[in-house]
């Protein structure tokens, strides 16, 4: 199966909870890099982190699975995903 056949989604992932972004943002970047996902952190505060990602749905699912746990010092209450407009141009 070639890469072009895989559907590439552009999504915004909103992570809500008690999230210490100082530890979580680098964690998310590392996890996305392991998945080969381009991502851009659009927003990060103590209660909400927004990540834009592009890639096959299985990989975005993997990012969601990882982020729903994250480092031990954060608690993720919910993760919601919505289609994002256009490409992210984010860093890998």
């Amino acid at each position: 199966m070639t890469r072009q056949n895989q559907d590439h989604l552009f999504e915004r992932m909103t992570i809500r909870g008690a999230v210490d972004s100082a530890s979580f943002v680098p964690w998310i970047r590392r996890h996305a890099a392991k998945l080969g996902l381009r991502q851009e952190i659009r927003h990060a505060d103590a209660g909400r982190i927004e990540v834009e990602v592009a890639g096959p749905v299985e990989l975005i699912d993997m990012l969601e699975m990882g982020c729903s746990l994250g480092p031990i010092d954060v608690w993720v209450e919910t993760i919601t995903r919505t289609p994002a407009a256009g490409g992210t141009g984010g860093q890998p």
């Binding site: 199966m1 070639t2 890469r3 895989q6 392991k34 998945l35 080969g36 096959p56 299985e58």
Partner: peptide
Amino acid sequence: RIPAHPGLSPPETI
């Protein structure tokens, strides 16, 4: 290959 997700071509980062 990831058998649970046969439709995915795994990225070389995995």
